[in-house]
Simulated assay, not measured.
Amino acid sequence: MKKYKIAFLGAGNIARVMAATISQMPQIEAYAVAARDFSRAKAFAAAHGFQKAFGSYEEMLKDPQIDLVYISTPHSHHYEHAMLCLEHGKKVLCEKAFTANAKQAQKLLTYAKSRRLLITEAIWTRYMPLSKKINQLIDNGIIGKVTLLTANLGYMETNIERVMNPDLAGGALLDISIYPINFASMVFGPQISKVTSTCVFTDTGVDAMDSITLCYEDGKMAVLNTTILSRTNREGIIYGDQGYMVVENINNPERVRIFSADQKEIAVYEAPEKITGYEYEVLAAIGAIEEGRLECAEMPHHETLRVMKLLDGIRESWGIKFPFE
Results as ranks from 00 to 15, higher is better:
residue 290 E to H: 03
residue 61 L to W: 07
residue 7 A to Y: 03
residue 116 R to T: 15
residue 88 H to D: 04
residue 232 T to L: 11
residue 71 I to T: 13
residue 275 I to A: 07
residue 80 E to H: 15
residue 90 K to E: 02
residue 205 G to E: 12
residue 218 D to A: 12
residue 6 I to D: 02
residue 162 R to S: 08
residue 280 Y to E: 04
residue 44 F to H: 11
residue 56 S to T: 00
residue 294 L to T: 14
residue 122 A to Y: 01
residue 253 P to G: 04
residue 181 I to S: 02
residue 319 G to Y: 00
residue 270 E to H: 10
residue 311 L to K: 09
residue 70 Y to P: 04
residue 248 E to C: 08
residue 219 G to K: 08
residue 79 Y to M: 02
residue 172 A to R: 08
residue 28 I to H: 00
residue 41 A to S: 06
residue 74 P to A: 08
residue 7 A to C: 01
residue 252 N to V: 14
residue 138 I to D: 00
residue 237 I to M: 14
residue 117 L to R: 07
residue 61 L to R: 02
residue 143 I to H: 02
residue 96 K to I: 12
residue 213 T to V: 15
residue 276 T to P: 04
residue 297 A to E: 10
residue 245 M to Y: 03
residue 306 R to T: 01
residue 51 Q to H: 06
residue 222 A to K: 00
residue 141 G to R: 05
residue 267 A to D: 01
residue 44 F to G: 07
residue 10 G to C: 10
residue 9 L to H: 11
residue 207 D to I: 14
residue 118 L to C: 02
residue 37 D to N: 15
residue 284 A to K: 10
residue 216 Y to C: 12
residue 281 E to G: 12
residue 287 G to I: 10
residue 276 T to W: 00
residue 31 Y to M: 04
residue 56 S to K: 04
residue 325 E to A: 13
residue 154 G to Q: 08
residue 74 P to I: 04
residue 129 P to N: 09
residue 44 F to M: 10
residue 74 P to E: 03
residue 30 A to F: 01
residue 170 G to E: 06
residue 93 L to I: 11
residue 78 H to G: 02
residue 122 A to Q: 05
residue 211 S to T: 11
residue 311 L to R: 08
residue 8 F to G: 05
residue 263 Q to K: 14
residue 131 S to L: 07
residue 248 E to Y: 09
residue 172 A to N: 13
residue 242 Q to I: 11
residue 68 L to W: 02
residue 72 S to F: 05
residue 253 P to C: 05
residue 301 H to W: 09
residue 282 V to D: 01
residue 188 F to M: 12
residue 134 I to P: 00
residue 262 D to I: 15
residue 173 L to Y: 01
residue 105 A to R: 05
residue 308 M to K: 12
residue 43 A to E: 06
residue 105 A to I: 03
residue 278 Y to S: 09
residue 47 A to V: 02
residue 196 T to S: 12
